[in-house]
């Protein structure tokens, strides 16, 4: 890619271009605020909402983050167990697949009944959504270990545990990262939906309130805030990936 091409596609520049387009398009086509409010109004609304926005952002971040970490750990655990114990995979994997086909909304209701309007309920929903892609990708990564490398390690007299740590885990890491990146976006969606079942703080709560009072400008503030949170979480994972898991799965 040329230097100019790279600058044009870098994330901050993309954001800037979208903002400029927004500024230009609204007066140009005389768009009603009901459909797309002017960017200046959205900014003013964000300033007005600032303390609530900040508290909501932090709260939703926390729910997503805790849920994601827990889901990722459990997902990696189950994925590993499935990869090494065929019987477990046969017994439990179909159950997980079936569970995944239950829409999170239906599942969320029972979680709120179990855990009440606590942060825990949102964490559990975020966990539930992150778990599956991580487990599946861990299983896929660990089952795809190059048999030649595995034989080489055995010929050195490596134990199963050594083979797992020195070969299987690093070789599966790029695939597990793919699962984690899927999982973190789902976790955020889970946390926001979880807040709709009832709470007082959070981006999801603000979103629902704005919807009830038809505060279109506020909805846009929240869309941007949710997008920012999602981008931050995904970006952090991508940075970790580029720094520590840069090799290809083969």
């Amino acid at each position: 890619m040329t230097m100019r091409g790279r600058i044009l596609t870098s994330p901050p520049v993309t954001v800037l271009l979208v903002a400029l387009a927004w500024l230009a398009v609204v007066p140009l086509f005389n768009i009603e605020p009901r459909y797309l409010p002017p960017l200046g109004d959205v900014y003013a609304e964000a300033v007005k909402l600032w303390p609530d926005l900040l508290a909501g952002f932090w709260r939703t971040f926390l729910e997503t983050f805790i849920g994601f970490i827990a889901g990722a750990l459990i997902g990696i655990g189950f994925g590993t167990a499935f990869a090494y114990v065929r019987l477990l995979e046969r017994a439990f994997f179909p159950i997980f697949v079936a569970l995944q086909s239950v829409p999170v909304i239906a599942f969320g209701a029972i979680v709120v009944i179990w855990f009440g309007n606590t942060i825990l309920a949102k964490v559990v929903i975020a966990l539930y959504l992150a778990f599956f892609p991580v487990a599946v990708n861990t299983l896929r990564g660990l089952s795809g270990v190059n048999p030649g490398r595995a034989a080489l390690l055995s010929s050195f007299g490596a134990s199963n545990w050594q083979s797992f740590l020195m070969l299987a885990l690093p070789s599966a890491a790029p695939v597990i990262m793919t699962g984690l990146k899927l999982g973190i976006s789902l976790s955020l969606a889970g946390a926001i939906v979880g807040e709709w079942f009832g709470d007082t703080v959070g981006l999801g709560v603000l979103l629902l309130q704005a919807l009830y009072f038809e505060q279109v400008t506020r909805v846009w503030v929240l869309i941007i805030a949710c997008g920012l949170l999602g981008a931050l979480l995904y970006g952090a994972l991508s940075l970790i990936e580029r720094r520590y898991v840069w090799w290809q799965f083969d």
Binding site: G148, L152, F156, G157, M166, P170, S171, W247, Q248, D250
Partner: peptide
């Protein structure tokens, strides 16, 4: 074996010491 089967995530030095680490 026929193929070099080096571990892409290890440096040349750490690939060379693989068997020693196993030991």
């Amino acid at each position: 074996p026929q193929k070099d089967l080096l571990f892409p995530w290890r440096t040349v030095l750490d690939n060379a010491t693989l068997a020693l680490e196993v030991e």
